[in-house]
C-alpha cells in the first residue's frame, strides 16, 4: 500500500475509543441488574457486537483502510451470523 494511504490515529482518538469501550463494559455489567428475561442475553450480545465493531473500525483501522478489507471482514461476519442464525432455527423450534 502506498504511504499516503496509511492513516495514523491520534492519541486523542485512541483514548476516546478506549473510554467508549470501558463505558460499554460498564453498561454490560449494569444491565445484568435489570430484569429483561430472555432479552438479557440479546442485550449483552448487542453491546458486545458494538464493542467488536469499534475495535475493528478504529483499532484495526478498517475504517481508514481500502474498502476491500471492510467488505472481506463484513462477509466473514455475515457468514458467522448466518451460521449462528441457522443454529438458532434448531433452538427456537425445539
Amino acid at each position: 500500500m502506498s504511504k499516503e494511504n496509511n492513516h495514523i490515529s491520534s492519541y486523542k482518538d485512541h483514548l476516546l475509543v478506549l473510554a467508549l469501550l470501558i463505558t460499554l463494559t460498564v453498561i454490560t455489567v449494569a444491565i445484568t441488574s435489570i430484569e429483561l428475561n430472555a432479552f438479557n442475553t440479546a442485550a449483552a450480545m448487542l453491546i458486545a457486537s458494538c464493542k467488536a465493531a469499534i475495535v475493528l473500525l478504529y483499532f484495526m483501522h478498517l475504517r481508514f483502510d481500502q474498502k476491500i478489507f471492510l467488505i472481506m471482514a463484513f462477509l466473514v461476519i455475515a457468514l458467522l451470523v448466518v451460521v449462528i442464525g441457522i443454529t438458532f432455527i434448531d433452538y427456537l423450534y425445539r
Binding site: I86, I89, Y91, Y93, R94
Partner: peptide
Amino acid sequence: GMSEGARWV
C-alpha cells in the same frame, strides 16, 4: 433431537 424446522432446512 434437533428441531423439525431445522431438520428440513
